Simulated assay, not measured.
Amino acid sequence: MKRIILFIAVTLISASSFGQLLKPVKWSYASKKINETEAVLLIKATIDDGWHIYSQTVPENGPQPTAFSFSSSKAYQLKGKTQAPNPVVKHDQTFDMEVGYYKKSVVFQQRVKLVERSPTVKGTLTYMVCNDLQCLPPEEVAFSIPVK
């Protein structure tokens, strides 16, 4: 009986340790009205130490760039492209090319023209996160940002 209990305990501990997924990037969202007809969306990535995500523009055959897709709506219109601070540009050994990336945190900004008073902007973002040893598969994250 003790062996059965020990076997079950070891099996559960092993299964739970395999079930832990790496999530080195946390996303947060906010909006800020500039005036009655315009707002800026703030999309922040907080990146664990030792990891980085790639900029919105990378060379062909490189890593997955960070990309944003906004749902179309009659409540708002996008103004221009999603903006970001200048990335760190270095040679990436994994891809054997110069690439731009962000460490620790980065805030992406998207301006919107408000057609309705308080719309909710929805969309998805795609990104890839790497460290010096590995890259995780590209991930797509849905977001919903109320503009108040």
Rank of each mutant, 00 (worst) to 15 (best):
D132C: 06
S16G: 08
H52S: 07
A142S: 10
G62V: 04
T124M: 12
T11H: 12
A84R: 05
Y101C: 00
V107A: 11
K104A: 12
L12F: 13
Y102Q: 05
I145H: 00
Y102F: 04
S16P: 09
A84M: 05
E36P: 03
K44P: 06
V112C: 07
V10P: 05
A15L: 13
T57C: 02
F95P: 02
L12Y: 07
I13F: 07
E139M: 09
V10Y: 05
T124S: 14
C130N: 04
T11S: 15
V141A: 00
A75D: 05
S73V: 04
E140K: 08
T124W: 04
L22P: 04
N61V: 08
Y127P: 01
Y29K: 01
E140M: 10
L21G: 07
R117P: 01
L41D: 05
A15C: 08
E38Q: 09
S16Q: 14
P65A: 10
L133H: 15
D96R: 15
V147C: 01
Y101N: 07
W51Q: 02
T57A: 08
V121N: 00
Q77R: 10
I5T: 12
W51N: 06
S69A: 07
L6S: 10
Y76S: 01
G50T: 06
I47T: 08
S71A: 13
K79E: 09
F95V: 02
V88A: 11
P87M: 00
T46C: 02
Q77I: 06
F70S: 02
S73H: 02
F18I: 15
P138R: 09
A9M: 03
Q77G: 05
Y76A: 02
K32N: 09
T11G: 14
T37P: 01
E38Y: 00
V141K: 06
I8K: 01
K90F: 09
R3W: 14
K33R: 14
S105C: 05
G19T: 12
C130R: 01
T126M: 07
F68K: 03
K44Y: 04
D132G: 15
I47S: 08
T94Y: 15
F108I: 10
S105R: 10
A84Y: 04
V58E: 12
Q56G: 15
G123W: 01
K90Y: 11
K103S: 13
Y101E: 10
K26L: 12
V107K: 13
Y29H: 06
S105K: 14
K23W: 14
S72C: 08
K81I: 13
R111D: 05
Y29T: 05
M1L: 11
P146T: 02
L78Y: 09
Y101R: 00
K26W: 08
L21S: 13
A84C: 11
S69E: 11
S28G: 11
K23G: 11
S31V: 04
S69C: 07
K23P: 06
F70K: 04
L22Q: 14
S28T: 15
C135V: 07
P85A: 02
M128K: 12
P65L: 09
Y102A: 03
M97N: 03
F108L: 10
P87R: 00
E38C: 00
G80V: 02
V112W: 03
K104D: 15
P146S: 01
V147G: 03
L136C: 04
F95Y: 12
D49H: 15
Q77M: 11
A9V: 07
Q110E: 11
S71L: 11
D92C: 05
V25I: 07
V129C: 04
F7E: 14
K113R: 12
L125A: 06
I5Y: 09
I4Q: 11
I43N: 03
Y54S: 02
